[in-house]
Simulated assay, not measured.
Amino acid sequence: MKNKYSLLLVLGILISFTIRAQGNNDIPDIPGYKTLKCDFHIHTVFSDGKVWPEIRVTEAINEGLDAIAITDHLKYGKLGKYPEVQEKNRNRSYEIALEAASKSELIVIRGAEITQGMPPGHINAIFLTDANIAQKEYMDTFYEARKQGAFIFWNHPHWKSPDKDFKQDGIPEWYDVHSEMLKKKLLMGIEIVNGRSYSKEAHQWCIEKNLTLIANSDIHIPIGMEYDLTLEHRPTTLVFAKEKSENGIKEALMNQRTALWFEDNIIGNETLLTHLFQESIKIIKTEYLENLAVVTISNESGIDYLLENTGEYSFYNKTNFVELNAASQLTLMVKTGQVMDQFHLKWSVKNMLVAPDTYLTAELLCKKSGIITDKKEIK
Rank of each mutant, 00 (worst) to 15 (best):
G224S: 12
N299F: 03
K200F: 12
E363G: 01
K75F: 04
R92F: 08
K185I: 00
V294E: 08
K4L: 14
M1Y: 11
N291M: 01
R90H: 11
S280Q: 09
L211H: 10
L330D: 08
M352I: 00
I70E: 02
N309L: 02
A293E: 06
T141C: 06
K164W: 04
S102L: 02
I221K: 12
E363N: 12
S245V: 02
N351R: 08
G170S: 10
T296D: 13
F321R: 14
L360H: 06
G195N: 11
L229S: 07
A125M: 03
N91K: 03
I266V: 15
L276E: 06
T115P: 08
P222C: 08
P120Q: 01
N255T: 14
K88E: 14
I70S: 03
A202E: 11
G302C: 10
I68C: 07
T258Q: 10
M254W: 07
H344E: 15
D176T: 13
T141V: 02
G248V: 04
T18V: 03
W159N: 10
S245Y: 05
S179L: 01
E87P: 01
D26G: 09
E251M: 06
K185Y: 10
S47Q: 07
E377Q: 15
T129W: 00
Q338Y: 04
I114Y: 01
F240Q: 08
F153H: 12
R20L: 10
P157Y: 01
V295Y: 09
T319S: 15
N3R: 09
D304Y: 01
T361V: 04
L186E: 02
G80R: 03
N317T: 05
L272A: 12
E279I: 00
G248I: 01
R20Q: 13
N291T: 14
Y94W: 12
S197A: 11
T35M: 03
H122E: 13
A202K: 05
S348N: 13
K75L: 02
M118S: 09
G111L: 04
P162V: 04
A150G: 07
L79P: 05
L106H: 10
E300A: 10
N132M: 01
I190R: 04
G64F: 06
P356K: 06
E63M: 15
N317G: 12
A60F: 05
E363I: 00
H156S: 06
T237R: 09
F262A: 02
K136M: 10
M188D: 13
K167C: 04
K147W: 03
E243I: 05
E95S: 11
N3A: 13
H220S: 07
S280N: 08
L273I: 08
